[in-house]
């Protein structure tokens, strides 16, 4: 079945093309749009992008396989990346992975039998001061312990990724300033309200994105 972007996303591609002096530079942003809609970069997606950007499918395949975040096979509804690089491992990254494997019933690199979660090991996700942490879909969940992790996974399973992100996800945030003015940055949940304006790279709300392939 041929792949096509939604008209709204087609509009975004036109906008993206204006940002660069060369058409090819739109490749990563356009692949992102496709993956957000389709869930993964299927051969049909590659073909579509090749035509849209006037590139060979070999070039696109080469790019897709270079970057870890482009999936060249289908993944679960939620993709859980557990950081296992040193800073996280010093604070319990291994325990987090072990707990996830037990809870989801699959080892890292695989998808749970209900298709809801794909568990993947990640290399450093740049949240070392808030270790241990995981990334689920587009969001970070930091300063984890297993109880908090259970709540986060359960929320994804029952309420969906977007609602879970609103409730539990974290962004870099500022704690009480020190006397010296140098303050520690810890993590805080993002604000619940989401603005109405949609941007090209903005993750789609729950329910959008998957299964729209025509």
């Amino acid at each position: 079945m041929a792949f096509a972007l939604t008209p709204e996303r087609e509009q975004q591609v036109d906008d993206i093309l204006t940002r660069y002096p060369e058409r090819r530079a739109a490749l990563l942003p356009v692949l992102w749009l496709c993956q957000r809609q389709n869930g993964w970069i299927s051969p049909e997606v590659v073909k579509y992008v090749a035509e849209r950007l006037e590139l060979s499918t070999a070039i696109i395949q080469g790019v897709v396989t270079f970057y870890t975040m482009f999936f060249d096979e289908p993944v679960g509804e939620n993709v859980v990346w557990v950081c296992r690089t040193l800073s996280c491992d010093l604070r319990g990254g291994k325990s987090i992975q072990e707990h996830l494997e037990k809870k989801l019933g699959c080892t890292a690199g695989h998808t749970s039998s209900d298709g809801k979660f794909t568990l993947l090991k990640a290399e450093c996700l740049a949240a070392c001061g808030q270790a241990p942490m995981v990334q689920i879909n587009d969001y970070y969940y930091e300063n984890l312990n297993v109880e908090q992790l259970d709540r986060i996974i359960d929320a994804h399973a029952t309420k969906g990724g977007d609602a879970a992100a609103t409730e539990f996800s974290t962004f870099a945030s500022f704690a009480a300033p020190r006397g010296s003015g140098a303050g520690p940055v810890t993590s805080a949940p993002p604000p619940p309200s989401k603005e109405a304006v949609r941007l090209a790279s903005q993750p789609p709300p729950a329910g959008d994105g998957k299964g729209e392939e025509s």
């Binding site: 800073s87 010093l90 001061g129 704690a175 520690p184």
Partner: peptide, 28 residues
């Protein structure tokens, strides 16, 4: 930034030239 085995891991702003001992003990 400080991560790993400290009481207060996180990010701090300070002048260039503090020592690692200060960073670990006083900031983190």
């Amino acid at each position: 930034g400080v991560s790993g085995h400290v009481k207060n891991p996180g990010l701090f702003e300070a002048p260039v030239g503090i020592t690692m001992r200060e960073l670990i003990d006083d900031y983190a």
